[in-house]
Amino acid sequence: MPQLEVRNLTKRYGKTVAVGDLSFGVEAGRVTGFLGPNGAGKTTTMRALLGLVRPSNGEALVEGSPPAEMSDPLHTIGAALEATAFHPGRSGRNHLRVLAAAAGIPKSRVEEVLAMVELTDSANRRVKGYSLGMRQRLALAAALLGEPHILILDEPANGLDPQGMRWLRDLLREQAAAGCTVLVSSHLLAEVAQTADELIVIRDGKLVTQTTLDEFTTGATTRMRVRCADPPALASALEGRGAGVERDGASTLLVNDLDGQAIGEIALTVGIALHELAPLRSSLEERFLELTGEEAPQ
């Protein structure tokens, strides 16, 4: 059974459809990256899984039940939603004490998580003086407070410095290795590509793909760059075999849908000398942008 599941989840705000008929499951023991451009509906989906947003249709389930029915919420699920969700006048330690008290978690655990995120020295300062990275770490400390076996983190890497990023990656890997369910959202593939085992990609509130990182990588489209003596003739020969061909300058063709061996053999049969035959693997990021329909930055 998936630890987290949305079934036909739909959330409308007035006429705007934030999430439309979205279904997926998230399994334990791995890090699942939840990807999509800004405004794709990631946060709304996560909030539905946390019981903060009521679905217009469909359902969001935690361990098979609606989130409002969790008997021991902080021990079940830890969430870091927005790095700004603190009362600016309250200290970091007191913020955690408020949550610990509500869930019956001992004070000593507050000190433990403060040490984990390396905020012990700043714990008595009011949050208004914290940097974005510190707030992000405080949010993570809050998520870890109840030693939950499910983590839902919304853009946790925002504002973290490189050490913080590495620390976060290690933490997520450790949690997953210990059998936890980890769902991490990001609008940047690179942030989760090094950590995630599985990817869920959404766009405009709809599922684009759910796949393992390995499949995602091998599924990246491969194109061949071909330089040859007679590009127009080779192009028509390749097109005759069902390939998509683009011209790239006078002597170069970009060929889709055929591998190097096929192209070489076709060139041999039509008697055109090849000068170059090279695969162009589109990067993960390009594939992600391709899927989410955004133009690659120039």
């Binding site: 909030r47 946390l50 019981g51 903060l52 989130p67 409002a68 029915e69 969790m70 919420p73 902080l74 699920i77 969430a79 939603l81 927005e82 700004t84 969700a85 603190f86 009362h87 913020h95 408020v98 949550l99 509500a102 869930a103 809050a142």
Partner: peptide, 11 residues
């Protein structure tokens, strides 16, 4: 935005 954390701890 602390309502979110409050109601996560006590749904």
């Amino acid at each position: 935005g602390t309502a979110s954390t409050t109601f996560l701890a006590a749904p």
